[in-house]
């Protein structure tokens, strides 16, 4: 049982650190926001292992969900929300924005 918890913590740690590096290196800002939500979900898993289910619930709902929604809406208003292409080539691209939802 304790060994299983250790493996879960190892997996969540690796996911969190990879997601944190991805926040810094990803060119697309929407992808960086998604990586931030992934880090928050890994933290929620670790909080469950640390015997704090209430904190895990809050971290998953507020830290991953609400903060991701706030950031995505702000990116939409800033004009950085396009999936296609990089942030530099996005403003002049008008025809290829039909695919994103």
């Amino acid at each position: 049982m304790e060994s299983l918890a250790n493996w879960i913590v190892l997996l969540a740690t690796v996911i969190m650190l990879v997601g944190a590096v991805a926040v810094l290196v990803l060119q697309n800002y929407l992808a960086a926001v998604a990586a931030t939500s992934v880090v928050s979900l890994g933290a929620a898993v670790i909080f469950v292992v640390l015997r704090a289910p209430d904190v895990a619930l809050t971290e998953a709902a507020v830290g991953a969900g609400l903060s991701g929604v706030i950031m995505a809406l702000c990116l939409r208003r800033l004009g950085l929300h396009r999936i296609e292409g990089t942030a530099a080539s996005a403003p002049q691209a008008g025809a290829d924005t039909d695919g994103d939802s």
Binding site: E2, S3, A5, N6, W7, V9, L10, A12, T13, M16, L17, A20, V21, V23, L24, V39, G42, I46, V49, L50
Partner: peptide, 27 residues
């Protein structure tokens, strides 16, 4: 055998703090 749980948790916490500080400075 998996690694020590305390070591992994401190690695995650300090890694996140370090990467966050690096991003604040470098971005």
């Amino acid at each position: 055998t998996p690694p020590d749980i305390g070591l992994m948790l401190f690695t995650a916490a300090f890694g996140l703090v370090g990467i966050g500080a690096l991003g604040i400075v470098m971005a």
